[in-house]
């Protein structure tokens, strides 16, 4: 069939792309700048295989990412996946190969990851990520270090107009646990929050006979966005212990961000949830003025290494390289 093709029309799979000489050079220069930044902050590079066993990797990905996995069979009939992110493979690597190394470990990577999404601008099926993992360190200082490094990364890349949004999964868990809903309902509530389907969320609360006052409380908290004053506003709305602890924690992280001089780039979004199931504490996403998608994201995942029998706290972030380049291009056009 290929014989009849006009020259120059050999396709590549949807959601993949070539990098031509100028583009590839630019991408490598950006990667080199980011790698230098990570090294300056004392992070060391690691590399893991593109292919992993499904059963090894699919421990805590969440429904959405799980449904986007590229699966294939090796010749023994074992199920393999193309890695959908780097956090899980690095957790696997640390728990097996680095388990006797002194903690904390500061690791970074530059790698391509694979997700079977519907391809559109800035959303490829194979895309590059640069990111870091800070493993073996709990507490607000570690989280603030990661957030500050995210800000630094975007600045080094040359991005001017961007904003990180910061939330806390335990706040959401606390607020939802207060409603004493059947366990089966909670995932659908979280899913609505992940999509920021506030109408759907309210409908679900209504369907589950949550009284009006509680509904107002939940919706009120999840709609809060802004500076540290929203933490006090949220305290007025909930008496839940877990939620209160999460708000205190966010305040501590905020104080560290002020010390690190990056608080102007960060704003709180108390309804923020991310697609990956493994997050256990703070979560954040970064947005730029001229790109409709998050550029980067991260958060704390204290249980993931436990899945590999090496329980230890961890936090990290990744930035999408194609999206970062798109945002930089958009900025240049302005």
């Amino acid at each position: 069939m290929a014989l009849n093709k006009p020259p120059g029309t050999w396709p590549i799979p949807a959601g993949t792309r070539d990098l031509l000489p100028g583009e590839a050079r630019r991408r490598r220069e950006l990667e080199a700048d980011l790698a230098k930044t990570f090294q300056r902050w004392n992070y060391q590079e690691v590399v893991t295989p593109t292919l992993e066993y499904y059963e090894t990797l699919a421990v805590d990905l969440g429904e959405e990412v799980e449904s986007e996995l590229y699966r294939l069979l090796d010749r023994d009939g074992r199920l393999l996946v193309l890695r959908p992110d780097m956090t899980t493979p690095i957790a696997r690597m640390v728990a097996t190969r680095l388990r006797h190394y002194p903690l904390p470990l500061r690791l970074f990577y530059l790698a391509n990851v694979f997700r079977y999404e519907s391809p559109q601008t800035g959303r490829l099926r194979e895309f590059g990520q640069a990111g870091v993992e800070l493993i073996g360190k709990a507490g607000a200082e570690a989280d603030a270090e990661i957030i500050a490094l995210t800000v630094e990364t975007l600045r080094v890349a040359g991005l001017r107009d961007f904003q990180l949004c910061l939330g806390e999964i335990q706040l959401i868990n606390g607020v939802l646990e207060d409603l004493a809903l059947p366990e089966a309902v909670v995932p659908s509530l979280k899913q609505a929050l992940t999509r920021k389907d506030l109408v759907g969320l309210e409908e679900l609360l209504l369907q589950n006979q949550v009284p009006a006052a509680k509904r107002e409380m939940v919706m009120g908290i999840f709609r809060l966005q802004g500076g540290p004053s929203v933490l006090n506003e949220a305290r007025q709305l909930t008496a839940n212990k877990r939620a209160g602890a999460a708000l205190d924690y966010l305040q501590q992280v905020w104080n560290c961000l002020v010390d690190l001089n990056v608080e102007l780039s960060v704003h709180l979004d108390l309804g923020l949830v991310r697609g990956f199931e493994y997050y256990t504490g703070i979560v954040f996403e970064g947005y730029s003025a001229n790109l409709g998608y998050p550029l980067c994201g991260g958060g704390r995942y204290d249980n993931l290494l436990g899945h590999y029998d090496y329980p230890c706290p961890a936090t990290g972030f990744a930035v999408g390289l194609e999206r970062l380049i798109l945002a930089l291009d958009g900025q240049m056009r302005e």
Binding site: D161, Q163, C165, K196, V199, R223, Q225, G226, H267, D269, E285, Y287, S288, A289, L291, G292, Y293, P294
Partner: peptide, 18 residues
């Protein structure tokens, strides 16, 4: 009918949209 928002605008223009 629903009011929908772009993910980035919702953050970057929060002071207008909120």
């Amino acid at each position: 009918a629903r009011l929908i928002a772009n993910r980035a605008s919702f953050r970057i223009k929060a002071e207008i949209i909120q």
